[in-house]
Design a protein around this nucleic acid. Structure first.
Length: 356
DNA sequence: ACGTTCCATAGTAGCAGGCG
DNA sequence: CGCCTGCTACTATGGAACGT
């Protein structure tokens, strides 16, 4: 049936212009809020737009402005509170600057990260914030820069890549945590990370830790241990705590081995919680039987008995800083790339005791 | 069959010109 | 002279039309 029912075609600037009896350009100036228009014309156009129910077509707008008003964020694990807090910092800055945020999760897998970046560039994001899952593989990131998409790395830097990065002071932080344990008499200290690895596999070379943040922490840990006269500390740097089951196995392996560690540093808060559960399940008392320090001041660390001593990374601030830097780049800041290192602090709670 | 050109889309940038 | 308005060209892209 043919009739004169209103078509579903969306109302455009041209429609509003026609209805307001002005040119398309003038209507666009009113609706886009740029240029100069007389008050009379402005109210004419605004009224016409209201009657017709005009909604701007962002797709068409980004065509001429060359901006999509969107920034893409690729994080390692969105379920990790570390990243969700960082994303909040990023979003808060982005929103006030008029940008939307599209979040993608790489699951710390390089292939997923590449796919996410491709997708985001395809969507014409104005900039990218990426937590690189493998700091040894940066071709896809150079490509992004080559296409002209500003990039800021988050949490992990890639020294070979001339690009902005915002990271924590990972080396210092790990040294601080290690020294703290040493001051309680601990010598045999284990460092546990979620990086893929066999149960019992310990740190021997850099290639095992493709995330430079973890690598820097391990370096800090080893430096502090070495300074304290512990030379084979790397044997207690353990990989493979990828989930609770694996962490249970890693902890079991540590506690059954020699030397048996009297303290454990967890490389992130997810591992920290898993390690804490593991110790509880085994009937061990923290800190009487074993001490523990976790990276990242996650909520759970304050409600356990005892509450957990943590390395507090100002993650929200790190996220903000990354977004600010990215937006400055999008707005044409052509200065040299910079590596921002955000200092961390140790929050001493109750999970560290004297070594037995 | 294949490559090239053109058109349509919605909005904006830049310039030209009218008017007071 | 300066404010306001309109014309024209341009953006990226897919698909149609066209030529070889």
């Amino acid at each position: 049936m043919k009739d004169f029912a209103p078509s579903k075609r969306p109302v455009t600037v041209a429609d509003v212009a026609k209805s307001a009896k002005v040119s398309k350009a003038t209507a666009a100036r009113v609706l886009g809020g740029y240029g100069t228009v007389s008050d009379k014309v402005r109210s004419q156009v605004t009224a016409a737009a209201a009657v017709l129910g005009y909604r701007p077509n962002e797709l068409a707008r980004s065509m001429t402005t060359g901006r999509s008003g969107t920034i893409g964020v690729v994080v390692g694990d969105i379920e990790n509170a570390f990243f969700s807090l960082a994303v909040r910092g990023i979003s808060d800055v982005a929103r006030t600057a008029g940008f939307n945020v599209i979040i993608a999760n790489s699951g710390e897998e390089l292939s997923a990260e590449k796919a996410a970046i491709d997708l985001l560039i395809g969507r014409r994001v104005d900039g990218l914030i990426v937590t690189p899952s493998d700091c040894g593989a940066s071709d896809h990131l150079s490509d992004a820069i080559g296409v002209g998409v500003p990039l800021v790395l988050f949490d992990r830097a890639i020294p070979a890549l001339q690009v902005d990065a915002v990271t924590g002071a990972d080396r210092d932080a790990a040294m601080m945590a290690t020294r703290h344990l040493q001051s309680f008499g601990h010598r045999h200290i284990a460092y546990v990370t979620a990086r893929e690895g066999e149960v019992g596999e310990y740190f021997t070379d850099e290639s095992q830790l493709p995330a430079t943040s973890v690598l820097r922490r391990v370096e800090g840990f080893l430096a502090a241990q070495s300074a304290n006269g512990v030379q084979d500390a790397h044997r207690l740097v353990r990989l493979g705590a990828v989930d609770q089951d694996h962490t249970d196995a890693v902890v079991a392996h540590l506690l059954g081995g020699t030397p048996r560690p009297s303290a454990i540093i967890a490389s992130d808060s997810v591992v920290g919680l898993e390690v804490f559960r593991s110790l509880q399940t085994r009937g061990l008392s923290v800190p009487r039987d074993i001490s523990i320090i976790s990276f990242f001041n996650a909520d759970w660390t304050t409600v356990t008995t005892p509450p957990i001593t943590v390395v507090d990374q100002p993650v929200y601030e790190m996220g903000r800083r990354a977004a600010e830097r990215l937006i400055a780049r999008i707005d044409g800041g052509a200065e040299a790339s910079q590596h921002f290192t955000i200092q961390t602090t140790l929050i001493s709670r109750g999970s560290v005791g004297q070594a037995s």
